[in-house]
């Protein structure tokens, strides 16, 4: 049988197999492999975001103007507070997770159960909070006009405060209705229509001398440029093509459409990670309850899912910085 035996000459050496050269079990090392590669994926997304932002540095939306909502504070300009509380929820769920891992090291089953339960609740709150933020982002607030070049023109009054399209748009007779599948020729439909039409916005704008156009160009003071009344009329009548309310992957009332694309993609991918993290946490949670790890004599599975959960928190720390702060 000697001829068939594979001899590598590494028997008994560190990397010869059968031992743990890096002091970790197979499952834990594989989790680190995964986390490293997933971390590189996320950094590629964020680096691509940086690339596009540097490319369109003067027309990039200002985060404080986009994410300034807080539940029950309608119309109040509250940047940062909401996303900061989301961050705290996630950091705290990381703390309960690491406490669960620590309790597992000491084989304290009941503590593991309660800490994991708290972690799952924290994760669910975070995903729910993200859904609310997406809703606000998709709905939009003031609306804007898009130009031929795909640039965004927003509207302010003479004090420089933002004005919603509905507030100054005129009323024109229109027979345009939402296109439904039953009315369309071939599998066409649309989900909704803007509440005002472009011609209504234009008519209302021409009548009201207090409304000015704010372009998406950032001036040297770090604010968006506000045009004079004459420039506004010229800009809007020459360049404007349509109304944008809210944001999707193609149009975006806040500024460069790429901003919305990256927002949906990166926070969405992160939210997907949180969701799968919750799912895996729930599976492990029930395994803890039925005593699987108690019988196995080791709570290492809790530690592995903990690694994943902390990684999700780690990614959020970077997303928070590059989307909301910088």
């Amino acid at each position: 049988m000697d001829a068939t035996a594979v001899r590598t000459g590494t028997e008994g050496k560190t990397w010869g197999g059968g031992n743990q050269p890096l002091g970790g079990s197979y499952g834990k090392l594989m989790m680190w492999f995964f986390i490293l590669s997933d971390g590189l994926t996320f950094s590629a997304f964020l680096a691509a975001y940086g690339f596009s932002r540097f490319k369109f540095i003067e027309e990039w939306p200002i985060a404080d103007e986009v994410f300034n909502h807080f539940p029950f504070l309608h119309g109040v300009d509250a940047p940062m507070y909401y996303v900061a509380s989301m961050t705290f929820v996630l950091i705290f769920s990381s703390v309960t997770m690491v406490l669960a891992v620590d309790a597992g090291h000491h084989m304290k089953k009941n503590k593991v159960i309660w800490y994991m339960f708290a972690t799952i609740i924290g994760g669910i709150i975070f995903v729910g909070a993200q859904a609310w933020e997406w809703t606000k982002f998709i709905q939009g607030e003031y609306g804007a006009v898009e130009t031929n070049a795909g640039r965004i023109l927003q509207f302010v009054n003479t004090e420089g405060e933002r004005v919603a399209l509905e507030d100054f748009a005129g009323q024109l007779p229109s027979e345009r209705t939402v296109l439904t599948r039953s009315e369309a020729l071939w599998y066409q439909s649309e989900s909704s229509m803007p509440t005002v039409t472009y011609s209504e916005v234009l008519a209302g704008f021409m009548e009201d001398d207090n409304i000015l156009v704010r372009t998406d160009v950032i001036n040297e003071n770090g604010q968006k440029t506000i045009l004079s009344r004459e420039e506004s009329i010229k800009k809007l009548s020459e360049d404007g093509v349509g109304v944008v309310q809210g944001a999707n992957l193609k149009h975006n009332e806040y500024g460069a459409p790429l901003f919305a694309d990256f927002f949906f993609f990166i926070t969405g991918f992160h939210g997907f990670h949180v969701s799968t993290g919750i799912l895996i946490n729930i599976i492990i949670f029930f395994n803890v309850i039925i005593g699987t790890y108690e019988r196995r004599g080791s709570y290492e599975m809790v530690e592995r899912v903990g690694l994943y959960w902390h990684f999700v928190d780690l990614v959020w720390v970077f997303v928070f910085t590059f989307f909301y702060l910088v």
Partner: peptide, 10 residues
Amino acid sequence: AYYITWAFMH
């Protein structure tokens, strides 16, 4: 990130 990796991720 350093503290999350070093302390929480052991």
